[in-house]
Amino acid sequence: MYRKSLAYPYLIWAAIFIAAPLLLIVYFSFFKDGVFTLHNYQKFLEDYYIEALIRSIHLAFVSTVICLVMAYPLAMILSSRQMTNKEIILLLVVLPMWMNSLLRTYAWASLLENNGVINSILNALNVPKVQFLYGNGAVIFGMVYNFFPFMVLPIYNVLCKIDRSLVEASYDLGANKITTFRRVILPLSMPGVITGMIMVFMPALTTFLITRLLGGGKVILIGNIIEEQFTRTRDMGFGSAVSMILMLIVLGTLSFMSKKDSLDKGGGLF
């Protein structure tokens, strides 16, 4: 009894700040002036909304893959025993997160400008000007930059916890480095990889700030559409419906990923 009561504050918190808003979103998306309607969901079927959704999934997926490809080797190097000063490198990975992401994205927006610092340096080196901003490339860059730590940390955690004796056993049984990685280390690190992928994919899917600042307002993702419904158009019904659709997609992705039974072995978040 005593132990259970410790959970009450959280339960109350969850009811007020998670369950109630969620129910409100469901309500707003299905009811207009108190009458049940599917209008908000039908509206989403316009091709430009569907395109925005597909574009969001596409860009979020690409940035997740880039993050994974860069983060896994880094996490492996950091978790190896020979590594010294790994705290410093970990700190460098986490350090940018101490600063507000809005500020960091603003900074990139001016660094990458056509007449920005980076292009001025290129210019001094006689390299022709590159237009970094105002397109999908800049948006993917912004996502990778902002969400990279979320990929490194879970993988690093899982790799650190792998029992060394399993790796040694693999070598003893005659496996070479590649086989050991493929058959032992990689499967054991999957919970971290999946957590990292979810932690990168979800914020990338819903971002609206990065697209606006780095995409020059020309890359319209689903997050931008939701934001516009609430701040400018004041169409809460449609905004809620789009949020619901997005949540269903996230839920689908999560349940698909957690099918992998390796998740039970700990280190994973979901």
């Binding site: 909304y49 890359v219 319209i220």
Partner: peptide
Amino acid sequence: TQVKASNS
């Protein structure tokens, strides 16, 4: 929305 989405 259509204008901004037309080009990306």
